[in-house]
Amino acid sequence: MGKIKLNNIRVHAWHGCLKEESIIGSDYRVDLEVHADLSVPSKTDKLSDTVDYVHLNTIIKEEMDIKSKLLEHVAKRILDRIFMEIPKIKSAEISVSKINPPIGGDVESVSVTLSAKNE
């Protein structure tokens, strides 16, 4: 078993419960860690034998582009799609962070982290 990590994916998206958030949007950071059997690609050196992190990044960007009220919802959608499209992945953990959230204080970010197994 091995892991692939995508760190600090930066996107601008329109998630939130406030009307202004769906109009102006906010900056987000996404961190993803997936676990898969990497023994074959470590020997073959073939992209087709591994988990393509370009595909993972595309899923994240496309799902972040769909408005959600809650970070929990968008994180779950990303995990569901990853498992549906990339069956080689056995488990994953994702953190979605809203940078400078509108919560009436000086807060760098708020984050939601979800973990799941591909069943």
Score class of each variant (00 low, 15 high):
residue 58 T to L: 04
residue 81 R to F: 00
residue 79 L to C: 06
residue 43 K to V: 13
residue 18 L to D: 10
residue 110 V to D: 00
residue 60 I to Q: 04
residue 86 I to C: 05
residue 27 D to Y: 12
residue 75 A to S: 12
residue 20 E to R: 05
residue 112 V to N: 02
residue 65 D to K: 12
residue 82 I to S: 00
residue 5 K to C: 15
residue 73 H to C: 08
residue 115 S to H: 07
residue 40 V to P: 06
residue 18 L to G: 07
residue 108 E to A: 15
residue 108 E to N: 12
residue 13 A to W: 09
residue 43 K to F: 09
residue 12 H to C: 08
residue 5 K to W: 01
residue 26 S to A: 13
residue 6 L to V: 15
residue 109 S to M: 04
residue 100 N to L: 07
residue 85 E to D: 12
residue 12 H to D: 07
residue 15 H to L: 08
residue 61 K to H: 07
residue 29 R to T: 14
residue 107 V to Q: 03
residue 36 A to S: 13
residue 87 P to V: 06
residue 104 G to S: 04
residue 93 E to N: 03
residue 84 M to R: 06
residue 3 K to C: 13
residue 58 T to N: 06
residue 102 P to H: 06
residue 63 E to T: 06
residue 63 E to R: 08
residue 117 K to F: 01
residue 24 I to W: 04
residue 31 D to A: 10
residue 50 T to G: 01
residue 75 A to K: 01
residue 71 L to V: 13
residue 81 R to T: 11
residue 27 D to F: 14
residue 15 H to E: 10
residue 76 K to F: 06
residue 72 E to K: 06
residue 20 E to S: 15
residue 85 E to W: 08
residue 4 I to V: 15
residue 24 I to F: 02
residue 104 G to E: 03
residue 110 V to M: 09
residue 12 H to A: 12
residue 15 H to W: 02
residue 86 I to Y: 05
residue 16 G to P: 09
residue 107 V to S: 01
residue 47 L to C: 12
residue 17 C to V: 14
residue 40 V to I: 14
residue 116 A to G: 14
residue 118 N to L: 01
residue 33 E to A: 10
residue 13 A to Y: 09
residue 34 V to C: 04
residue 118 N to V: 00
residue 19 K to R: 08
residue 1 M to R: 04
residue 41 P to H: 05
residue 55 H to M: 10
residue 39 S to V: 11
residue 37 D to C: 00
residue 30 V to F: 02
residue 27 D to R: 07
residue 86 I to S: 08
residue 57 N to R: 05
residue 4 I to E: 07
